[in-house]
Amino acid sequence: MLIAVILALAVGTYGFRAVGVLLHDRLDLPEWSRRLLPIGAAALLAALAATAALTEAAGFAGWARPAGVLVGLVLAWRRAPFVLVVVAAAGATALLRLLGLP
């Protein structure tokens, strides 16, 4: 049973990934819809970032995580190096949790 679950997940996930890539060649998309694709991908990534920053198991993630992400956001805006953005976001969140913020 376990192996069937893992295989189904693996095949399905790979299917989503590969079908998109392979369809890219097969579909002769008109120019206007080609322009929509990167915008759609940006919307998906923004939605992932926003839900990952704010929510946990369909509820609010607590204050420490969004606060840390906000620190990262401000640094990214000021064109800080990527590594600094990531480390500062994690560090700020860790520090706030250490101080007792959920």
Partner: peptide, 29 residues
């Protein structure tokens, strides 16, 4: 747990300079 969304946002920022992309991405988020 804060590192991943922060990294994604940093990678997205340049793309969000485009006005259409910004509106769609923000609304979607």
């Amino acid at each position: 747990d804060a590192a991943f969304p922060a990294g994604l946002i940093a990678l997205l920022l340049p793309v969000l300079r485009d006005r259409d992309t910004r509106w769609v991405a923000l609304t979607g988020a």
